[in-house]
Amino acid sequence: MSPTGPATQGLASDAAVASRETPPADAPVAPREGLEDTTGAVVVALAQMAPRLGDVATNLDRHLTMIDEARRGEADLLVFPELSLTGYFLKDLVPEVAVRLDGPELERIARAAGDLDVVVGCVLESDETRFHNSAIYISGGAIRHVHRKVYLPTYGLFDEQRYLAAGDRFRAFELLLPRASQPRRWRAGIVVCEDMWHPSAPALLARQGIDILICPSASPGRGIIQGAALGTALSYEWMTRTFAQLFTCYLVYCNRTGYEDGVAFWGGSRVVGPDGSLLSEPGGAGEALMWHRLDLATLRRVRIAYPLLRDENDELNDRESDRIRSRRAQD
């Protein structure tokens, strides 16, 4: 199970980057000539991978390899799945695999990434000995944003609240993307897997203004009824396309692959455009590095056609929320 190189099917079949020649994996870093256009294009790579459960050292090495590949392929942003440094069904391994914001693991990733922006998944330990399922945005050698998963599923095959502490915020942030030439800064928000099953999460981020909703995920496949394909895959198909369209933003969904304790993670990573259309065929069930080209011009065009964000009535939302809250307080 080694990741396919950037020159394999993920690239060849990706119409979204077909306009740009893709260098083979061993090509030297080429100058970014021809990309200084006014469309604000950025190249986002998705590392659909199968982390080794509880083995941070091995996973860290795999991250560095993929960062290297993404750099050579001239990606601007590389997104890893949920808990990419540790694997998912950790149980009592959580304290043993946790990293700190100022720890050597994230430092090594930041150093290797250089001017490539990276979103990586890990268990973050706080000074209060709380463990958070986290997605870390690293740019220019430093940690720029941390999202701690808010909605920790504890039902069915999930048991996150037994081992992990919940985050308490959804905050939009600027993507620095030093490798790209942009007419303006891109803004992003992160939801981790289950967070996206709560529409208030992307709604809160959209209200702060986002161009990309990034969703690192470790979604176990289940549901085998005929006609529904894989039940969970279908749910994410609906969610990713619906949210991208309703919040008129790009939606970057990076799900992991592989098996843990007999449970299969189904992959299917994809980028959905702001009109709800898939930028390319979603990833399969295997490991792959997938490339997509996103641009501000498309965002602008779709938002002119569908000014949903302009028409969102924040004042009404606040008023109604206040009313509901005060009524609840009286009960």
Partner: peptide, 24 residues
């Protein structure tokens, strides 16, 4: 319908399961 399965999806999951759990 309750028991009708997508045999292709199930087979690919089971083949992957056996390969991974044995090699792992």
């Amino acid at each position: 319908d309750a028991l009708r399965i997508d045999t292709e999806v199930v087979l690919s999951l089971l083949v992957g399961f056996v390969r991974e759990e044995v090699h792992k």
